[in-house]
């Protein structure tokens, strides 16, 4: 039988020790992704280190003015936390654009960072996939690849990181705190997820046994000018085709500081620091936004035409950036611009 043992760890160092002392072990957060992967037989851990009892579910203010999100805080508790809502509404909005209330109630922040791609072939054992089984080939290069990426892809993998939350964390320049067999360290968010290159099996830069303990948000939350624009195949409960998280600091019509990231297009939330710089010190205008969008997608590569293939994401991505920047400048939209909600116009 597909049997495994399970330990309920109660402290971070204990969890790390437990995991590293078992072969084929995995951390279990909310289980909303891992358990699916196990049911699909994509991963067969023989031991689970359950994180549910770790004292890492709090959200606390940091002395430098930032905010610490515990790795075990649920996505829902994070999105609805008063400090997050007040100071980081971008993060709140982004989390709420993902999945469903039931999933967000179970999903943890640490698990969200580490969820796997939704590439069809990754989930289907009947098809080759380099990410699942290195060296077998990438079925998405020629097959339907609507979910796949157009930026930073490689011939070995064109998968995307599916998280919404992480797109906002990239724009907010969060820092990931991890604890491993060799102690604690921090990873800048832009360095946390990686591009596939010729090692698509690795989604991120965590080392063996490392546990995410918290995510630190810097003081700046862009609470006055922000947006998360998510374009998807239905109004709820669908991963982004393209999404854009924007945080701006404005002085009148001048953009003082700009941070944005694009989701649904790459193996990691896509940030382009040169494009951000193009915005800074400039007057907001559609022309400028179009130039910025063009810069971001200048090197993009589509993998086939038609609605089953993803080349359309290049044009869609550009338009999404232009719209998202405009929304963030004007702040003229309802609370959640992503869904029409049931307002019955």
């Amino acid at each position: 039988m597909n049997s495994f043992t399970l330990t309920q760890a109660t402290a971070a160092d204990e969890a790390v020790r437990d995991l590293t002392s078992h072969d084929g072990a995995a951390y279990l957060g909310g289980g909303t992704n891992l358990v699916d992967l196990m049911k699909y037989n994509l991963t067969r851990p023989t031991h689970l280190t359950s994180l549910g009892l770790l004292p890492l579910a709090d959200i606390t203010s940091l002395p430098d003015g930032g905010l610490r999100l515990g790795a075990l805080a649920t996505n829902a508790d994070t999105a609805w936390h008063p400090e997050v809502e007040k100071r980081y509404p971008l993060l709140s909005q982004t989390i709420l654009a993902g999945a469903t209330p039931q999933l967000r109630n179970a999903a943890t922040n640490g698990g969200n960072l580490n969820q796997r791609t939704r590439c069809y072939y990754f989930y289907d054992l009947a098809t080759p996939c380099n990410k699942r089984e290195p060296g077998t080939g990438c079925s998405a290069l020629t097959g339907p690849n609507r979910v796949c990426g157009v930026l930073g892809t490689s011939e070995s993998c064109i998968a995307t990181h599916p998280s919404d939350m992480c797109v906002a964390l990239a724009a907010l320049e969060a820092v990931v705190r991890v604890q491993g067999p060799d102690g604690e360290r921090t990873i800048k968010f832009e360095d946390y997820h990686r591009l596939p290159g010729d090692q698509p099996e690795a989604d991120n830069t965590l080392k063996a046994g490392e546990l995410v303990t918290a995510i630190d948000l810097p003081e700046e939350g862009y609470a006055d000018h922000f947006t998360y624009l998510k374009l998807r195949d239905r109004s709820s409960y669908a991963f982004a085709l393209v999404s854009v998280a924007v945080g701006l600091k404005m002085s009148g019509q001048t953009i003082e500081k700009a941070r944005f990231a694009v989701g649904g297009v790459a193996h990691k939330p896509w940030r382009d620091q040169e494009a951000e710089k193009m915005l800074e010190g400039q007057t907001a205008s559609p022309d400028l936004f179009r130039k910025v969008a063009a810069k971001v997608f200048a090197e993009a590569k589509g993998y086939g035409e038609g609605s089953l293939h993803n080349s359309f994401k290049i044009e869609l991505g550009k338009r999404a950036i232009v719209r998202a920047l405009k929304q963030a400048v004007e702040m003229e939209y309802e609370v959640n611009p992503n869904a029409f909600l049931n307002s019955n116009p």
Binding site: R118, Y120, Y121, Y123, D124, A126, T127, S139, T142, G143, P144, V147, D233, R234, S235, S236, Y237, A238, F239, A339, F340, L341, N342
Partner: peptide, 21 residues
Amino acid sequence: NKDFGRYVNHNYAEYHIPTNA
């Protein structure tokens, strides 16, 4: 997927039908 003669979005996450929203 014509390479495999196989349907590939064979789950509720990727075969889209409307939600309440």
